[in-house]
Design a protein around this nucleic acid. Structure first.
Lengths: 218, 218
DNA sequence: TGACGTTTTAAACATCCGTTTATAATCAGA
DNA sequence: TCTGATTATAAACGGATGTTTAAAACGTCA
């Protein structure tokens, strides 16, 4: 099965290089030479560089969304009509994020890719992710809405993205930060450590008091 | 003074294009044609594309750090030996961030650039920023340390970066998010609105309860 | 005016990019 | 073993990139 071998070798190499340098800064020749594969193989198997980028994401996001939907199903049948507490929802998401890429020790890569999807231009990527995986985010957001009934809709929208920023930014820039932390505090930090540290901060942020109204307070 | 004119026209155009598309995705020909300047002018005035990128950052960060140092001086002389409250420190930083690029209506650009500095590869940029502007961050971190004496050093280190992630991620991806928010909640959101919303979340995150210890809790 | 340092300009440079082509190798089914 | 489709490979394509060169234009001061 030389075909599958070539395809996965391309994907394995591409995801690492993309995560390290970004999409535009990683050439097909970088990928194919490191993967020991012919240059034309990418266009043969994937069609284009854009399609390769999307395939790299799909390999993470397909199992993630499937698993996340399953776990949410279980939670919903367990709680019935009662709202699922915010802590449970966050815990459940964290667990899923941890489990999916675990087999390849690539959580760091996964997070970095998510960060790139947000920050790199690549309009096609945003559209691809929105179209293929928007529904699972919508479902999660709706459950968060029920868990935080006192939060105005707009406020919750923004806080969800604040928290997304906290997590993605931290985990995607992890390598650089870890070096500093290790040097300054002599403490080795695993991704699981970081998630343990993140949880109370995220929960406190979501439950923070509402900001003072825009124009009031003379 | 045609020289100054050319230099600033290059910088003005470059910062907008960099913020929109990133560094690698913006070619010198993009910049020079939009700025109505000869292609070779960039290499003549700045030496290289890397140097141009650094010059774009220096134009924001030089006045920012100068002003921030001044404001911190004032705060320290006002509080003497007493620690400056966290809210005051954050408020002071937010005000400085808002004031510096205000004259050019370019806060959005500034934030987006900061986000790029973190997420794009560009090792030279990280080194440049670290070398030239690391000291002001160190000073701020020390003041935060005195404001949160109960926080373990490592915990505070990570929380500072969590908060940095929240702010930079949100403000740098602001355009996309603002479109969604406007469509879904019919609410126009200014950068000042967002900072108003950010403050309670950031404060609550910094003051969140400590995470449970790593291996305890049978 | 004339000479000189600075700035602008057009053109070329070498290099890299993503993609395509045409040919060779490989493999399964008859 | 021959056939036909699938996969691998080397080479080339057209175009874009950052940078350099050498000549022109400009401004300034004697």
């Amino acid at each position: 099965m030389a075909q599958t071998d070539t395809v996965t070798r391309i994907l394995d190499t591409a995801e690492v290089l993309f995560a390290e340098r970004g999409f535009a800064e990683t050439s097909l020749r970088n990928i194919t030479s490191k993967a020991k594969v012919n240059l034309a193989a990418v266009n043969y198997h994937f069609g284009s560089k854009k399609a390769l980028i999307q395939a790299v994401f799909a390999r993470y996001l397909d199992p993630f969304t499937e698993r996340f939907h399953t776990v949410l199903d279980e939670l919903e049948s367990e709680y019935g009509e009662r709202p699922i507490p915010l802590e449970v929802l966050l815990e459940c998401m964290a667990r899923t994020v941890l489990e999916v890429p675990a087999e390849r020790n690539s959580l760091k890569v996964f997070m970095r890719l998510l960060g790139l999807a947000y920050t790199q231009a690549q309009g096609h990527l945003r559209r691809f992710i929105q179209d293929h995986y928007g529904s699972v985010f919508t479902r999660f957001a709706e459950l968060v809405r029920r868990a935080t009934p006192d939060l105005p809709d707009a406020e919750r929208f923004w806080r969800l993205h604040f928290m997304l920023g906290t997590v993605i930014f931290t985990l995607s820039g992890l390598d650089a930060l870890r070096d500093i932390a290790e040097k300054d505090y002599g403490e080795h930090v695993s991704v699981r450590d970081l998630i343990r540290r993140l949880r109370p901060v995220v929960v406190a942020g979501m439950n923070a008091p509402l900001p003072e109204p825009a124009k009031a307070a003379s």
